[in-house]
């Protein structure tokens, strides 16, 4: 599965044109936690309908930068973001932007599966409900079913949509969280180490899912596993000490990186 994943990534598909469009672009982004300068001068273009992986040693700022893309850092009082991040050429830090609307466009999946203590159905229906995506109950049913199908969970849960989401296994919970994010039909899905709390079998399923989701969504994934980055992504960005060291096609990055630090990290010399 490892190599086949790589192959599909570089095989030209009808979506090639869309793939090369810039979806998210960051210019000179600085992030501070109080006095601490956590992210320095990050410039990156994230392409549409592509999986971009952020790698780097822990504490390098990759998660922090990820959370800037849907302004999740707003919920942390001491955090300050400077510079410009735009999605479809609209600056998301513009004072006119409502983070609530932004987050409908940029969904997020977290490190630890965090289903709400509600039924499976309610977990997925939550987003469509708050954003008013369904006019009728039947619409909502369709959206939930569709999202669960996209998350590859439908067959496992279709008979027990009313049972609590917290009763699922860890991998199922994480796919439920992905279904929850997908149900809002965002354009970008951010994933913060989505497999770090999962066992290898569950991880494989989630990776397969990411691969399928790429057809419809722009995906940014933070991962601590280089193998995972190589398996699921087309583009890889390497962070180190708050700096973006290198950003490149994934196969180039893992075979012939431009930067010595990337080379060292991939070779396991630090991290």
């Amino acid at each position: 599965m490892n190599m086949s994943g790589m192959t599909t990534a570089i095989t030209p598909t009808p979506k090639v044109a869309a793939m090369n469009e810039t979806k998210v672009s960051a210019r000179d982004v600085q992030v501070y936690y109080g006095d601490k300068h956590a992210i320095r001068d990050v410039n990156i273009e994230i392409r549409s309908r592509t999986v971009t992986a952020f790698i780097g040693p822990s504490g390098c700022g990759k998660s922090t930068f990820l959370r800037c893309i849907n302004r999740m850092n707003d919920t942390i009082a001491s955090c300050r973001v400077e510079g410009n991040i735009s999605i479809d050429s609209e600056n998301i830090y513009d004072p006119k932007v409502d983070p609530v609307q932004l987050r409908a466009k940029v969904g997020m999946v977290f490190q630890k599966p965090n289903p709400f203590p509600k039924s499976i159905f309610e977990n997925v229906a939550y987003g469509p409900r708050i954003h008013g995506l369904a006019a009728k109950k039947s619409d909502l049913d369709d959206i939930v079913a569709s999202a669960l199908q996209k998350a590859g969970l439908w067959n496992e849960v279709k008979d027990r949509l009313d049972s609590p989401g917290t009763g699922l296994s860890g991998g199922q919970q994480q796919r439920l969280c992905i279904a929850r994010a997908v149900a809002v039909s965002p354009e970008v899905i951010l994933m913060d180490e989505p497999c770090s709390a999962l066992d290898p079998i569950a991880t494989a399923k989630v990776e397969e899912l990411i691969h399928e989701l790429r057809e419809n969504f722009t995906i940014v994934i933070v991962t601590h596993s280089m193998q995972q980055a190589a398996r699921v992504s087309q583009r890889t960005a390497m962070f180190h000490l708050g700096n973006l060291v290198e950003e490149n096609d994934t196969d180039k990055m893992f075979t012939n990186p431009d930067d010595q630090r990337t080379q060292d990290y991939i070779m396991g010399r630090f991290g």
């Binding site: 513009d94 609307q101 466009k105 369904a134």
Partner: peptide
């Protein structure tokens, strides 16, 4: 809207700079 994709399209075309009525 019984097809999921339509809804998605509906949202995607909106600019985040102008809050819609619901927001």
């Amino acid at each position: 809207v019984s097809v999921f994709g339509n809804v998605a399209k509906d949202i995607q075309t909106k600019s985040i700079l102008e809050p819609d009525a619901r927001t």
